[in-house]
């Protein structure tokens, strides 16, 4: 894409991407740059509240998420890649629009105006409009990589959001456009367990093992995840000796456009994906 057509986006990384999943964050930023978007981190963003704030205090949860909306500059769309962060940000925006006085309260609390028309876009929304076929011609692609797409609870949402676009099948579509081969399986929408991974490792461990076993039975060489928390729970909780690696979707995309070499992303995985990536000639 030419220089002149570059599009700036505000970017909300969220805690997981900023810390445990830095490899997810870096690969996402580099891939976006490659397809013409420059990501500008929201200044001084805070945690969206994760699964904990709404679990114990609804009002606190709204306030936390809404602070980020007051920090995003007006007129520039706000991109997030973590499905849970996106859900919290969208929930806060809906709350501000629907609850009388909520916007005034929010602006008074944080001492800044909030743009009610701020466009919130998930990484998947961005990809749904992008032309990956054209990209493939100038890059090595993912030829020969057999994968199962793991969406976790990403495609599920509360009834109030049921009319928003649903990107079911997007990972399969895009990665197969880039040369990879999706395998069919029945575990792509299993929730990863979120906080139960810490509190009930027994329950989540058994579930995660079933996910890995089914992925391997489907003939996949790797799982591709759309969420940094899913990625961590899958890697951390499995008790199996032999399991296939888990790639972040953004890593798979970056690999497809030839951005994988010389990166320290892959050494951060608990299951090392490098042997697989070398044998597929995706890295040297």
């Amino acid at each position: 894409m030419s220089r002149s057509k570059r599009i700036p986006l505000s970017y909300f990384p969220g805690c997981s991407m900023a810390t445990t999943a830095k490899e997810n964050n870096r690969s996402l930023i580099e891939f976006c740059e490659r397809i013409g978007y420059d990501l500008i981190e929201v200044p001084d963003w805070n945690c969206c509240g994760s699964s904990s704030a709404h679990s114990v205090d609804a009002e606190l949860a709204q306030d936390l998420a809404a602070r980020n909306l007051t920090l995003a500059p007006k007129g520039r769309p706000l991109l997030a890649a973590c499905p849970n962060c996106m859900l919290r940000l969208r929930g806060a925006q809906r709350h501000l629009a629907e609850v009388p006085d909520a916007q005034q309260r929010c602006e008074a609390r944080w001492g800044r105006p909030v743009d009610p028309n701020l466009k919130l876009i998930h990484f998947f929304d961005l990809l749904a409009g992008a032309d990956m076929k054209g990209l493939n011609k100038t890059s090595p692609g993912l030829k020969g990589m057999k994968f199962v797409p793991y969406y976790g609870c990403m495609l599920a949402r509360p009834p109030a959001m049921r009319h928003e676009p649903n990107h079911h099948g997007l990972m399969e579509k895009i990665l197969s456009d880039l040369g990879a081969e999706p395998r069919r399986w029945g575990y792509g929408a299993r929730c990863c367990g979120t906080f139960l991974s810490v509190v009930r490792p027994d329950v989540v461990g058994a579930m995660v093992d079933a996910i890995f076993r089914n992925a391997a039975a489907a003939g996949a060489d790797c799982l591709v995840t759309a969420c940094a928390m899913c990625h961590m729970n899958l890697e951390v909780r499995s008790t199996l000796q032999n399991r296939i690696p888990v790639l972040h979707f953004s890593e798979a995309l970056a690999l497809a456009v030839g951005e994988g070499n010389g990166k320290d992303w892959f050494s951060r995985h608990l299951v090392d994906p490098r042997p697989l990536l070398r044998s597929a000639r995706l890295i040297a």
């Binding site: 805690c15 810390t19 945690c47 509240g49 994760s50 699964s51 904990s52 704030a53 139960l196 509190v199």
Partner: peptide, 23 residues
């Protein structure tokens, strides 16, 4: 399930201190 509540409280305490979660 007091452990679940303890976990949520620790997450919130972290957000209170740092604005973000410190795992």
């Amino acid at each position: 399930e007091p452990d679940v509540l303890d976990f949520h409280r620790e997450v919130l305490r972290s957000i209170e201190r740092y604005g973000r979660t410190h795992k």
